[in-house]
Design a protein around this nucleic acid. Structure first.
Length: 676
DNA sequence: CAGTGAGCGAGCTTCCGCTTGACTT
């Protein structure tokens, strides 16, 4: 009997079916050994060591102390017994840095003298037979790269977090990923608060052709009219770009000028447009699409996808690769043909590649597994059905033809005023017949094809005052994409990081958008001042490059950790200020100070604890007197309690969360603010 | 003499990444 060990039990069952008799396939459920989390996990004889708390001997070559993870003893025992009974053992953890490390830890725990490592890119009978026929030794350089990553994360996390305990109080935390993520959110929040909106006017008129259409003023006497893009984030006009700025009076005069005036077509351009289908889902793009279309949070998407995976309906849901296996390409093309006919298929299958430099690509895209069941054949319901449908349609659409159309741009001249109208029309819907990811542009309309020189009177001219929008806050889905692009975190941890930031009270959700709390703002500012490396996304990018060098044997683990820990992080930690300086709110005369893990707000000469659930956008000049006297209460969330969740029968009861910010406020009867 | 409570000091908190159930409320 031969033993094959993989990470996931679902995978193990499937592979057992392919390899059949003579094989036993078992799962190790991810990492089985790790650094100790707390001192209790350190074996008795090491507990008195000065580095027992870190689990890494910083004075002795950064030697890590590994222990079997609590809860994994039974797994290890079973694997040991199976290994003993087997003639041969094959280690088939995922083909990436973490997988190589898992295989190495197993080889140590199972006492394998010469470990046989096998990897495969897709789970088919042929690929597996090929893989087990060609085992290789463990790649110890790749293992060293993983150990470096693990060690650095421990040193940074356990090294910096105690600074926050001392400076802020309470169970605060910092880390390479969460602190960089927090900083990105804090920067966006501050950019929003510092943003000065600019007013500009949009003037439009109906052109009475057949059919009639609407055109917008672009120039007056050849000078462009100011639009959102004409202003900087501080509300000033961009220099060196001459524009005309209207006010209410001038806008009104322009309306009068246009009404009834003939406009002559001076240019008519038709350009072909093609749109390619979006690639199949990865973890991050699935989060983004499910958040935008189904209004699901990151944790909810993870949970639903896990259930679909365990039921054999989709492939593995933690992946950074958009690639489809040959088998999947064939099935997706068959699905296109069955539904839309052979004419809807491109001549060749479409293959997609990642554009993400840090991608490890150990798994393929998230797609329907097995027979590519149509959503109606699945017996799913509620959110599970909705998510499966999204995955199914995106996968199948990725193998359809481009959408083809034409964009028409008409330029008109009415006296001294230039107007423009654009419209896009699809001639071949292609993939959009199944999955349309385009957001409709408000200016998009059906345009007639007009001869240059033809004239039509203008009617119904209108002027609207517009405000340039501040940089948008992130939704959870959008922010997962931001993290992936910045290279911080991995598909298995994007959701986890967002949860941590919320659990610590650094970030809160309101109307599905991520807000940085005053506590989060204070902590980001402190870390930026004391340990700037930790909040810098470039730090992770540099780390990834160095880990690759370690994996290639061009750099040693100790040399790298000496440079990053001994020379940079450790000195910064030891000279860090033991107190958090007061942080001013960017937009109102309020100063935040820490007090026993909570935030105090100083308003003039008064200091009050900040009410739970108060976010930066709640701080307005109007409410400051009420806040200072303690009479301020949060306004109810305008969206009210969320409902759609309860509809689905397939959804398991969700775990209860500890005190969620606004829950208390929602139950309390609404009260008028008492005047100060 | 037993029970209460103020006051004080000691110990704890924490990272990232890989994977599922087993637990409560």
């Amino acid at each position: 009997m031969k033993l094959l060990i993989v990470e996931s039990p679902t995978k193990a069952r499937k592979i057992q079916g392919y390899l059949g008799a003579g094989w036993r396939v078992m799962a190790c459920l991810g990492h089985v050994r790790d650094l100790p989390v707390t001192k209790d996990e350190v074996p008795e004889k090491h507990r008195a060591l000065p580095w027992a708390r870190l689990g890494v001997n910083t004075a002795g070559g950064y030697a890590p102390l590994y222990v079997v993870r609590p809860g994994k003893q039974a797994t290890v025992r079973e694997l040991r017994a199976a290994a003993k009974a087997a003639d041969e053992v094959f280690l088939a953890a995922d083909p990436d840095r973490e997988g190589e490390s898992i295989a190495w830890h197993l080889s140590v725990l199972l006492g394998l003298k010469e470990a046989q490592r096998v990897t495969y890119q897709e789970i088919t009978a042929a690929a597996l037979r090929q893989a087990v026929a060609h085992p290789r030794p463990l790649d110890l350089r790749l293992v060293a790269a993983q150990e470096t990553r693990r060690t650095l994360d421990r040193l940074a996390g356990y090294g910096v977090s105690p600074l926050l305990w001392a400076a802020v109080g309470g169970a605060q935390s910092a880390g390479r990923v969460q602190s960089a993520a927090l900083q990105l959110l804090a920067q966006r929040e501050q950019a929003r608060l510092a943003f000065v909106p600019s007013a500009y006017w949009r003037v439009t008129a109906d052109v009475t052709a057949r059919p009639a259409f609407r055109a917008a003023v672009t120039h007056i006497r050849g000078t462009p009219l100011a639009a959102a893009s004409s202003f900087t984030s501080t509300g000033h006009l961009k220099p060196d770009v001459p524009v005309t700025q209207l006010d209410a009076t001038k806008a009104g005069q322009l309306v009068t000028y246009l009404n009834g005036r003939p406009a002559e077509v001076t240019a008519a351009a038709v350009t072909p447009v093609t749109r390619r289908p979006p690639p199949p889902f990865t973890t991050s793009t699935l989060q983004q699409a499910a958040n935008a279309r189904l209004k699901l949070g990151a944790a909810e998407v993870t949970r639903l996808a896990q259930a679909l995976y365990e039921n054999g309906l989709i492939t593995y849901m933690r992946t950074d690769s958009p690639a489809l296996s040959d088998e999947a390409l064939t099935l997706a093309r068959a699905a296109v043909e069955a539904r839309f006919g052979p004419a809807a298929l491109p001549a060749k299958p479409r293959q997609y590649a990642t554009r993400n430099a840090n991608a490890q690509e150990a798994h393929e895209a998230i797609r329907p597994a097995g027979a590519f069941l149509a959503p109606s054949q699945t017996r799913l319901a509620g959110n599970e059905l909705a998510l499966y449908t999204l995955i199914y349609e995106r996968t199948v659409a990725s193998q359809m033809l481009d959408a083809v159309g034409e964009k028409t741009t008409l330029t008109l001249q009415a006296g001294v005023v230039t107007l423009e109208a654009t419209g896009t029309r699809l001639t071949q819907p292609g993939f959009t017949a199944l999955y349309d990811d385009e957001i409709r542009d408000q200016d998009d309309q059906a345009l007639p094809l007009l001869e240059v020189g033809s004239r039509f009177p203008l009617q119904n001219a209108k002027a609207e005052e517009k405000r340039s929008p501040p940089p948008a806050r992130f939704t959870e889905g959008k922010f997962v994409q931001v993290m992936e692009k910045a290279g911080i975190g991995r598909p298995s941890t994007f959701g986890h990081t967002l949860e941590t930031l919320q659990k610590r009270g650094y970030v809160a959700l309101r109307r599905r958008q991520l807000h940085v709390t005053p506590l989060g703002l204070m902590i980001a500012a402190y870390l930026q001042g004391q340990v700037p490396q930790l909040v810098d996304t470039a730090f992770t990018a540099g780390m990834e490059a160095d880990l690759d060098r370690i994996a290639r044997g061009e750099l040693t683990r100790v040399a790298y950790l000496d440079r990053v820990w001994k020379e940079e992080l450790a000195p910064a930690i030891s000279r860090a200020a033991k107190a958090v300086p007061a942080v001013p709110a960017p937009h109102v005369p309020v100063v935040f100070t820490p007090r026993a893990g909570e935030v105090q707000a100083r308003i003039g000469d008064r200091s009050v604890p900040l009410p739970a659930g108060l976010l930066l956008e709640d701080l307005t000049p109007d409410m400051l007197p009420a806040l200072a006297s303690g009479a301020w209460t949060p306004a109810r969330d305008s969206e009210g309690p969320r409902k759609p969740r309860a509809k689905s029968a397939a959804v398991k009861p969700r775990r209860k969360k500890a005190a969620s910010g606004s829950a208390g406020a929602e139950r309390r009867p609404r009260r008028k603010k008492t005047p100060p």
